[in-house]
Design a protein around this nucleic acid. Sequence first.
DNA 1: CTCCAGCCCC
DNA 2: GGGGCTGGAG
Length: 238
Amino acid sequence: MSSVNHHFPDPVIRRKFRQRLLRWYARHQRDLPWRKTSDPYKILVSEVMLQQTQVDRVIPKYKEFLRKYPTLQELAGASVGDVEATWRPLGYNIRPVRLHAIAQEAVGRHRGKIPDSLEELQAFKGIGRYTAGAVMSFAFRKDAPILDTNVKRVLQRVFLGSTNGNGSKPLKRLWDLSAALIPKGKAYDFNQALMDFGALICTARKPNCPNCPMQPFCLSYPWDKDNTPCPKLQRPSK
DNA sequence: CTCCAGCCCC
DNA sequence: GGGGCTGGAG
């Protein structure tokens, strides 16, 4: 028995999805400041800020934060209070505290570098599976999958529709999908494209199906057919 | 105003 | 598998 279905999704659909996503991205990608740097520290700052905060609110604070702490070393050398104050009013104020701790640990224990493995990244408090994948693909250009809410929604709709797939846990299924779709050596563009696609076309409410390049094979197209709500990934617990 | 979402921690 | 913090939807 094989535990992984190597033919899901259909290789033809898989290829079409990649092609269409990357082509769409080439024309519609957002101009975001953290896409202009390859400094893992700066990427990490952006990802932590983006964890619970919308892009528009993050952009100005990202710039201000990096003006004040341009390097990992300078962040590590600042006082926590100072970092917290700079963070305001982004909210979720545990994040700057953890980010500061990460900087200090990296300086003290990793030769002043952000580590470049999923395991080491996830060992930090404040970096979970998503953020670790984001740093691996966006900062270190590794073919690591990501799965945040946007990506979950896109993959669920296009490849699973209203079903949960082949019996395996929905979450694992989606992580596997996210990994299986990455074109070799192109996780950076592919993952960025997935995020933009989820933010601009395959939105939570009122997805823009009429302009969606995935129409021909999307299992949820057309979305408004019978006003179906987005399939829940997991049942409410109560 | 209440409720829900969302990434991470425990 | 539940709670926290916080913005945004209803």
